[in-house]
Simulated assay, not measured.
Amino acid sequence: MANSDRVVLALGGAGTVGSGIVKALLDKGFKVAVISRDSSRLDKLRSFVSPSTKDNLTAIVGDVGSEAGAEQAKQALLKAVGKVTDVVSSLGFSWWQGGPPHTQSLKDLHWVIETLLFSTFVSWKTFFPLVRDRSDGSYTFITGGAGEKVLMPGTGFLTVGAASTLAFCQVLREEYPEVPCKLNQVKIDAGVAAPERMAPGYLNHLDLGEGVAALVERGNSSHSVFTITSAADLKNLLLQKNL
């Protein structure tokens, strides 16, 4: 199937990681849909992507963090684009430094889990059925390495939330071993930033976007975890080498 016939739903597509993925997908000729609660972030995304690809971007204001909101967003999505062939999920946030666990409240922990895990689960439950039975479709999770280590003092709740998302992705790979669509995970063990905010050890979100877009385009891997720790890993992903 040609890229121009594929419609990718980019969950979290208005964020730093997601915007790089959206731009790369559009540049490859995909049609892309993005759902966000914040219309101003969608406007910013429209101005960020290549001008020649704007007509292939569908922006929908909606909330995928609740079951009712996700269902409403799905209906609006299908009305706007008709079908979805692929999903890339990069929901959540990249940083939380609220302090040591004993200084936090249950409300703080609930918010972290809700943002990182609950939204990932609700959106998967809502949108996975759209691509599950497509042998030419895919569902790709973008996760982080914080779930396997405390990045620095005060980030413990980030580790708890990120670890729960990693566990959820593992559960899906093992619970659904033979689904027709390609089910993959890209785990980023590095910071990600836009070019103007790069720091040592960080990955350019545009480069990351190209790697993820290449994975979606090829569609020849399934139930795999691609770990990205450096620009070299991204280059390997582009070249389809094992990471």
Rank of each mutant, 00 (worst) to 15 (best):
G145D: 12
G147V: 04
G147L: 04
G147R: 01
V150H: 05
V150P: 01
P153A: 12
P153Y: 11
P153W: 10
P153V: 11
G154D: 07
G156H: 04
G156I: 03
L158I: 01
L158K: 00
T159K: 03
T159G: 05
T159P: 00
T159N: 04
V160R: 04
V160I: 15
G161R: 04
A162Q: 08
A162F: 02
A162H: 06
A163H: 03
S164Y: 03
S164C: 15
T165K: 15
T165D: 00
T165S: 04
L166E: 08
L166S: 10
L166W: 00
F168K: 02
C169D: 13
C169N: 15
Q170N: 14
V171R: 06
L172Q: 13
L172N: 09
R173F: 10
E174V: 11
E174C: 11
E175P: 01
E175I: 03
Y176D: 00
Y176Q: 05
P177T: 14
E178F: 13
V179A: 10
P180I: 09
P180L: 11
C181Q: 03
L183F: 12
Q185P: 01
Q185M: 10
V186R: 02
V186G: 07
K187R: 15
K187M: 11
I188T: 08
I188R: 07
I188K: 04
I188S: 06
D189S: 11
V192M: 04
V192K: 01
V192Y: 01
A193W: 03
A193N: 13
A193H: 11
A194C: 00
P195Q: 09
E196Y: 09
R197F: 13
R197E: 09
M198I: 12
M198T: 02
M198A: 12
A199W: 12
A199E: 11
G201N: 13
Y202I: 03
Y202P: 02
Y202T: 09
L203H: 07
N204T: 14
N204V: 06
L206G: 11
D207P: 01
D207R: 09
L208T: 05
L208C: 08
G209L: 06
G209W: 02
G209Q: 08
G211F: 10
G211Y: 06
V212K: 06
A214Q: 12
A214S: 14
A214L: 01
A214R: 07
L215A: 06
V216C: 10
E217L: 10
E217C: 07
E217K: 12
E217D: 15
R218K: 14
S222M: 03
H223S: 09
H223T: 04
S224I: 00
S224H: 11
V225C: 08
F226D: 00
F226R: 06
F226P: 02
T227R: 15
T227I: 14
T227N: 13
I228E: 01
